[in-house]
Design a binder for these strands. Structure first.
Lengths: 211, 211
DNA sequence: GCCGTTATTGCACCAAAGTGCAATGCACCA
DNA sequence: TGGTGCATTGCACTTTGGTGCAATAACGGC
């Protein structure tokens, strides 16, 4: 499934820009899909599993490119963006890049520059996708844990002994072992080392971390 | 020691800029040190343990601000930078921010904007410093490991059993235990969970990771 | 050739982790 | 009211991990 062909989305209210970009990108063997507005794009794009990036004009009627960036961020949709603009300024570019945009290109730009940016964005996009999928897969498994198991988990990754966990929770060591077993099974790991690595990726904090 | 007062370095070839910035920053209760060139700055600043940030002009005779950024990066010196410029353009700002600069301010800018940037930079600087110190402390401990211990370490954080490690390295289980003990002692941890967390921070990869 | 470091291993024993089997109590739902 | 999921625990037993004590061996340096 990671062999999906990447796609480049183009959002610009100027049809001539859309067409020329489309042509350029297709000549570079990329799949392309164009939209006349941010809204149109947001309504149409649902397949978040395909490697992709987004080229957007900054200034557009309705939702601007920068707003679109915010929307995507709010939707936890990590789609690498390339901005193009006719009348952008430095503060605008700084803001966009600081929020994670890959490039901010003032028009006119040359083809090579854009293609380089697209390449970079797609690379980043695949990494994002991989990381995102990994994370959601982990969270999915975390959700199968019962509250108690979830609690035990935080003690496990803190490195406590069964005996210590039992004391902390005021339960029998045998009970801890039972939960512990379930945690390992449900999370699909067979060592504490793996468990720690998984939970780190998911942002789970070990018990007793700065209360 | 984290109670050190932060300092703001200013590098600009224009003395009037230096003076006005100095005044502004001092009025905001920051320690300030100014330099007329990047070279002067690089020669003078040695205390990397103090929370700090750097405000630099982009265009200067000799080493430019962007070059200075490269120099600092090469020296693994994570000093958050704020660029100010009279004639900067968008590609320049994009490049600077992508390389980690905190702000890129075209002149003229208002005092509030600069002070906000300084505040942000100093916050980032402290985080950098903390992370950097933590990392170097870990590496320091890693360096006390013998080659064999270092090797065992990678198997430990991969979650292998003593028995398995012994088989992999074709040595006795008792030997693995001996090394294992040394690793734990030297790294100053008493659980595999902690060991995994430490090595993650230091970028150590577990054995058997995509060879 | 002696010494320190590193790597190695055996034996015995205790502590901790993991397992199989089984049972109890509680809350919630149909 | 019986079924289901969750939390709990005991007992007995095996597997791993960890330790103390001790010894051997290779290597490099002085």
């Amino acid at each position: 499934m990671p062999t999906d062909e990447p796609i480049v989305y183009v959002v610009d209210d100027d049809v001539s820009i859309r067409d020329s970009l489309s042509l350029l990108l297709q000549s570079a063997a990329y799949d392309v899909q164009t939209f006349a507005s941010a809204k149109e794009f947001l309504d149409a794009v649902t397949d978040l599993q395909r490697p992709a990036c987004l080229i957007s004009d900054v200034k557009m009627p309705g939702i601007s490119g920068l707003d679109l960036q915010d929307e995507l961020e709010a939707a936890a949709c990590p789609l690498p963006m390339i901005f193009i603009t006719g009348h952008g300024d430095i503060p605008m570019s700084v803001k966009a890049i600081k929020k994670g945009a890959v490039e901010f290109l003032p028009k006119p730009f040359d083809d090579g520059t854009l293609l380089a940016a697209v390449k970079e964005a797609l690379t980043k996009g695949e990494q994002n996708l991989t990381r995102h999928n990994e994370k959601s897969h982990i969270r999915q498994r975390l959700d199968t844990l019962t509250p108690r198991e979830r609690e035990i988990l935080t003690y496990l990754i803190a490195g406590l002994l069964n005996k210590q966990i039992a004391y902390e929770l005021d339960i029998a060591e045998r009970t801890v072992k039972a939960h512990r077993k379930q945690v390992m099974v449900k999370m699909g790991v067979d060592s504490i080392a793996e468990l720690v690595r998984l939970t780190e990726k998911a942002g789970i904090k070990p018990a007793g971390t700065s209360p």
